[in-house]
Every structure is written in structure tokens, then in C-alpha cells.
Design a protein around this nucleic acid. Structure first.
Lengths: 195, 195, 195, 195
DNA sequence: TATGAATGAGTCTTCATTCAT
DNA sequence: GATGAATGAAGACTCATTCAT
């Protein structure tokens, strides 16, 4: 299994750095190889082509992102509490890896439609996580019975994404994680519905 | 003033069609020229370079988008009502022009960082509109006193944007405008705060 | 019609020279462009891709080759005389253009199967010319009634081709055209059959 | 002597199969190694480089081809009879090994000039065989006294080669060996000269 | 104004060969 | 002898922009 060999992760990590520092369109394969400390040709022993590096990058990073969130949420009981932990850690994890934040929020969105479609497949895992929280909330009576789960999910994801993107575009000059409580409060009100 | 000459708008409209139908990366200047019915060189009599076409496209289309919204909102009194009209028409206007929806939600996001930065400048007009509504709502007591306007704006814009993008990516198969009431309800709860 | 523009022929002639002097595998597009005195990109205004240059080269050169032979043969009456003129001029025309001889006999044969298949299409014109001579000869009684036209054509083409190739590989050190009478005599005997 | 070790022949046979089935340009060293059941690096214990595989392939296969023909001809008395056996077996041997026929008639001709020059060295053995037959024929009075041996050899080789190539390009759909008598008849007439 | 032919910089990928094990 | 992971050089093609007419 190539994914377990050290060079596989080495190349992906190099790609994150090169894309974050040079931008998507200036991230040549040769630059990634140099950053990874391997020859250009070695890249192609581990990845089918350049697009495959980017897809794998997203799958690896986003996959473990969703896994981490999933693990943390398990220990919470209420949907509200789960949403809180989700938001806190969504912000926290991206705060911890500024390069990754730049790549996922800005650079990878410049990719073409096909690549973005594959990225969306990976995002589904995240969106399902949100859906499960919303579903629990509605069932338990925490959230409004009439809550449209698809819309609520779009609100939650849209808000978090927009908040992180703003933070990245402001060059990460303020503390993203600090925003979590207020964002949680805002989103929760929408979910709870009219009292 | 070049912007008032017929070919200026002719080229921008051609760009919208070509980008929507071929995608950002397949929208060559020569294709836009052909669609506009002018020679390649003629483009450069009206635009500095290709990026200038795209920025101008966004300015023209988004400018009139904001103007239309601004005009409609004027006639509403309460902040809640203004927000309602904003959402309804944000959805309605993009529903009316499927090509434009594709271009703004999907294709133009593939542009590079600098272009996106300029696009954000144009978006400021829209965000200020939202801010004015929120500000009025807080002042009038409709919305929570403690409302963080920046976060609320990010929630509103993020939610609307995510909702429209989902609709475009689902190939506009359902009626976007129908979602307005529920989205308004969701967002309003967040703005009103705990009762 | 691109084929009538001067640069079209200019590029083809450049390709013949570059391939003859550098060999098929060392005939880069940039080298051909330089030899033709145009920019690399200009090549692609006249040819779909590199392969298209080579096919066009063969079509143009071989096309006029067949046309010239066809024209000359018309004036001869007997099949034997036509065969004589064919052989003489086959040798003469290639003698006149040493570069072309190298390209057609040695270099273009290194191309891949698809290209060679297309080259064969062009060669059909030549083979049909031979067939017509053989057919006339058989009908007029000059050649053996039992002559297998396909085999006779393969003998004629095979012999001429082998003879020219040998001459090219011997670096054109002797006079190819001088061989025509003897080659004609040899081939004619086969066609006439047992007396 | 490496040539006597089993892997030497194993690799050459693998090369014939891989080239015949994939074409010259798709016959990578790694593919040949895989077909031969050895590691890539092992190839280089038996051959200097890739070209050396191809030259050796031709030498081995063509060497035994000439040997077999030589052996068979020995038993014939007249030059005409020898020519007959030569043609029959030239066709027969290639008919028996369709892979080899594809490789020698089509694929190996795509190699570069140097390789083809070395191939020609190997072919000399065959051409000398033909020369000896012709020489005997002239001396014995079977063939025309004025016969130009070089031209006659080019006619014979050119005709046989063209005939086999046509058969291979027609995907070996008819029986090549059946053509031998007629081809022999045709060529013999040329050699015998005017009666 | 308008044209459109010409320009030329820039990059992903393949594959023969090596060499540490 | 045998392996196979790693190397790195090399080239076709696109397309935004110019400028002579």
C-alpha cells in the first residue's frame, strides 16, 4: 500500500507548503518534488498525475479532519453541545495549521470543476456529520421540529466556511478560535427556532 | 467613456455566456471575441487585459445586483422585512440569469488570488448593505443588542452563498426562490437572539 | 485555404530539411520553426500537431511526385515504355532532391504505426499508377496473361524502393538514375513472362 | 558466455512478444522485464542497454533464419531450385512465427538510424546467400550473363520484403506461403533474362 | 476604430538506466 | 547474481497579447 510509505505523506506535506506559499497556479510539480526532497519522477511512483496529488492531499487532510471531529463529538451528549465542540474544533484545527487553512480555503478552490467535484465528495463526510447532529437535535426536541435540515446544514457550513475564509484573507491576524462561542450562539438560535 | 459604448457591454455579455458554457479555464479571449462578434484585437480597445474583462464583468453585474437590491430594500421599513426582501431577491435575481449564477458561484472562483481580492472589493457593496440592515435592526431593538455584526454578516452571506452554490451545483433543478422564507426564518432567529 | 498560404509550404520545406539533417527523432518542432523562420506557435496555425506536419509533408511531396509521374506516363504508348518512364523518373525525381530521398526512404519510416498507415494511404496513388500500367500491359498482350497484378506490383514497388533505399544508405555516392535501364529490363522480364 | 544462459533467450523472446503486441514505442524495458519474469535491473546484466536487446533480438532471430535457409539450400542443385527453396522457406518461416513477422517487418523499422544500420549488418548474411545463388546461376548459365547481381539481389530482397510486409499489414489474413510459386516465377524470369 | 496573423514563454510526464541492498 | 526504488533530462502545445495594415 503506497499510502503507508513515508514518501507518500512526505510529498503531500510538501504540496501543502508549496501551494500555501506560492499559490495554486505557481505550484509546479518540480517545486513540490524539490520541497519533498525527491526527484520529479519519484512523484509519479506515488501519484498518477498532478491532480492526483491534490485530490489525495484533500482526502488525507480532510479525512483526518472529519475523523478528529467525529471522535471529539462522540463524547458530547446534547446536539447543542456537539455543535459547540464541532465549531470550536473546526476553528481550532485550521488555526493550528495555517498552511492547510490557506490551501483549503483559498487555493484549492481555484482548481477546475472536476477536481472540485472530487473535493466535494470528501466534504460529504463533514456534511453528514452536521446532518447527524441536526437530526439528533430535532429528535431530542432541542431543535425546532420544523427545522429544514438541508438548509440548516447549509447555514452552518456556509457560516463556518465564510468565517474561516475571512480570517484567512485577513491574513490570520486575529484569533479564529475566539469566535467559536458567538458563532455557536448565532447558529444555535436558528436551529432552536421560535420559542 | 468606454463603458457606455455598445461593444463594452457586448463583450461582457459574451464573456458571461462563454464562461458559463465552457468553464473558466476554457474561456479563451478568442472565444469571447467570437461570441461577441468582434476581432480578438478589438477586446483590447475596451479592456486592459483578460483579467480586466472578468473584473469588469463582476463589477457591472454585481454593481447592478447591489443597486437593484438597494432600491428594493428602501421601500421596506423594518430590518426583518428588509432582510426578507434581500434574501428573496438575491435568490430571484440569480434564478433569472442561470448563466450569471454559474459564473459567479462556480467559475469565477477558479480565478487567482489577486482577481478574487478585487472581486471582494466589489462584494463590499453587498456586505455594507447587509451591515446597514443589521445596524438598523440592532438600533431599533428588532435584533439582539449583543449581536456581533461582523459575524452575523458572515452568517448571512455564508448561508446565502452556500445555498445558491448548492442550487447551481444541483444544476438548478429546483426552485431557488422557494427557499427564501425558510432561510429568512433561520437567519432572523440568529439575529434576534435569545428571547 | 491554408495550404495555399506561403507559410504552409515554408514549414513543410523546413521540416524536410530538418528531418533529413537531424533524423526523425531529433526533428523537434522548435527546430522546424527556426528553420522555417517562424515562431513555434505559428506552426500550430497551419498544422494541427506535429504528426500533421509529417502527414502533410508526405501528402504534398508524394502527391506531386505521383502527379508528375502520371503526367509523364500519359505521353507514352506501350506499357513497357510507361514502365520505363516510371522507373527513370522515380529515380530522377528522388535524385534531384536528396533531402526528400532521405526523409521518405529512411526517416519517415521511423514514425509510429498510425502515421505509417496514413502514409500508406498516400502511397496508394502510386500503386494504382503501377496497377494501371500492368493492367494495360496484360490487356494489350505485352505482358503475360497469367500475370498476378498484385504480386507484380509488389515486385516493382519492392525493387524500386529497395534500390532507392540502398542508394540513400550508401550516401547517394553513385548515380541512381543510371540504374534505371537495367532495373527496367529486370522487371520487364518478370512482367512479360515465359516466351 | 552470457548468450548461453537461459535468461538471455528468455529476455529476447519476451521482447519479441512485447514489441509484437504493444508496438515498438510501447515496448518499455520494464514491460519486457515483466514478460520475461525478471526484474528491470536484471536486463542490464545480460544486455548493455535497450538498443542492445533489439540488436541481439535481430541477430539471434535473423541469424538462425539465415542458417536454416542456408541449410535447406545446400541440398538443392540448380540456382533456380535454390531460389525456389529460399522463397518458400522465407515465407514459411515467417508464417510460422507471426510475432516475429510483425517485429521484423513493421516494428523494428521504427528504430533509429544507428540501430537500422546494425540491422543491415545482420541482413548482410542473407544478402550474401542471395548473391551466392545468383553467382552460381550466372556461372552455370541458368541466369543471364549480363545479370547485374547487385540489382538482381535488390529485386529479390525488395520483392520478398514488400510481399511479406503487405501480408503482415493485411493482418496475415491470407496464406503467405501460397504466394511462393508465383513470386519465384516472376523473379526467375528477371534472372534468366531475354531468351 | 477594427482587424487577425504572429508571437514565444512556460510545464507535466515518461522511461532508460543506476546502485544500494 | 538479482532486485526494484529512485533518478532527471527532454519536448509538444496553448493562448494572452501585440502591431502592421
Amino acid at each position: 500500500m503506497k499510502k503507508n510509505k513515508p514518501k507518500y505523506k512526505q510529498i503531500i506535506d510538501a504540496a501543502v507548503i508549496v501551494i500555501a506559499e506560492n499559490g495554486y497556479h505557481q505550484a509546479q510539480v518540480s517545486k513540490i518534488a524539490k520541497q519533498a526532497g525527491v526527484a520529479d519522477g519519484t512523484i509519479y511512483l506515488y501519484f498518477k498525475n498532478k491532480e492526483d496529488i491534490l485530490i489525495s492531499l484533500f482526502q488525507e487532510k480532510m479525512g483526518s479532519f472529519v475523523e478528529r471531529l467525529d471522535e471529539l463529538i462522540k463524547h458530547e451528549k446534547t446536539a447543542a453541545q456537539k455543535l459547540k465542540v464541532l465549531i470550536e474544533n473546526h476553528f481550532l484545527i485550521l488555526s493550528e495549521d495555517p498552511h492547510l487553512a490557506i490551501v483549503t480555503q483559498l487555493e484549492l478552490r481555484q482548481s477546475n470543476k472536476e477536481l472540485r467535484q472530487k473535493i466535494n465528495e470528501v466534504l460529504k463526510g463533514y456534511l453528514e456529520l452536521v446532518d447527524r447532529i441536526l437530526d439528533q437535535g430535532v429528535r431530542s426536541g432541542e431543535f425546532s421540529k420544523g427545522l429544514d435540515i438541508r438548509l440548516a446544514r447549509q447555514m452552518i457550513f456556509g457560516t463556518l466556511d465564510e468565517t474561516v475564509t475571512n480570517w484567512v484573507m485577513k491574513e490570520q491576524r486575529y484569533n479564529l478560535a475566539d469566535l467559536a462561542p458567538k458563532v455557536h450562539e448565532l447558529l444555535l438560535l436558528g436551529c432552536k427556532g421560535e420559542k
